[in-house]
Amino acid sequence: MEKVPMTSNGFDTLREELRRRQQEERPRIIQAISEARAHGDLSENAEYHAAKESQSLNEGRIAELEDLTARAEVIDVSKLSGSKIKFGATVKLVDEDTEEERVYQIVGEQEADVKSGRISVSSPIARALIGKSEGDVVEVTTPGGSRSYEVLELRWG
């Protein structure tokens, strides 16, 4: 069983979504199916089919969340340190072409959100940064072409 690295915040978010889907969404969907079933002929009952599809999607996501939380390797980033970039690091970069500065935290795939400054450990930029230190220059091949970044700062926690 392959472990899935994630921060404690990411793990808590997944657990909360699992709880909500099991304890709130599941009963609501069951009620919707029951009400739609009471309308009679199921073969032409759009509400029934929509509720069943919603149930299928919810149960699929519950199974996925149960699997992810079971395989989670929760890493407490507040206890990490060092001069090399690795999972959990917060990195300040400058684009050598545009001089634009960006700050990213390297997190697990499930919690990645580029708009919030969290990039997946398996993303091209994170893979290029792993093992580098402050002052290093990294070349990142992205779908938009090759970019060059300098590591300005490395923080933990």
Rank of each mutant, 00 (worst) to 15 (best):
S123Y: 11
T98C: 07
R147V: 07
N9W: 12
L129M: 09
L80E: 02
L154V: 13
P143N: 06
R147Q: 06
E25V: 13
S133M: 11
T69C: 05
D113I: 01
Q31V: 08
N58E: 11
I29M: 02
Y149D: 01
E99Y: 13
E24M: 10
R61V: 06
I119R: 00
S133E: 14
E101L: 05
E111M: 10
P27G: 08
E150K: 15
G117S: 08
S148E: 13
R37M: 08
L68N: 03
A46K: 12
V151Q: 03
Y104A: 01
A50R: 14
A70M: 08
T141I: 14
A63C: 00
Y104R: 02
V77M: 03
E24N: 11
A32Y: 05
G82M: 05
R71L: 11
R26H: 06
V107E: 04
S56R: 14
T141F: 10
G82Q: 04
R20Q: 08
I130S: 10
R147P: 01
G88E: 03
S146K: 15
E44L: 07
R20P: 00
H49S: 12
N9P: 00
D76F: 04
E109H: 09
E73R: 03
A128P: 10
N58L: 08
L57P: 00
A72N: 04
E59D: 15
T141L: 13
K92F: 00
E53F: 08
V121H: 10
E59L: 12
G82D: 06
A72G: 03
V94M: 03
T98H: 09
D136L: 07
G144S: 14
P27N: 10
L18I: 07
L152A: 05
V140Q: 02
V137Q: 06
Q105H: 09
L14F: 08
R71E: 05
I130L: 15
V121C: 06
L18G: 06
R26C: 00
Y149T: 02
A128H: 09
K79I: 01
A89T: 02
T69N: 08
S8N: 11
V151M: 06
V74W: 02
R37L: 07
Q55K: 12
H49T: 11
K86A: 06
P143Y: 07
N45R: 04
F87P: 01
V151K: 03
G144Y: 10
E25D: 15
L68I: 09
K115L: 08
R71N: 10
V74F: 02
G145F: 05
G88V: 01
V91T: 01
P143Q: 05
Q105C: 09
E150P: 01
I29A: 03
D113N: 14
D95F: 11
D113P: 00
V114D: 07
R19N: 12
I119L: 12
R118E: 12
L93F: 04
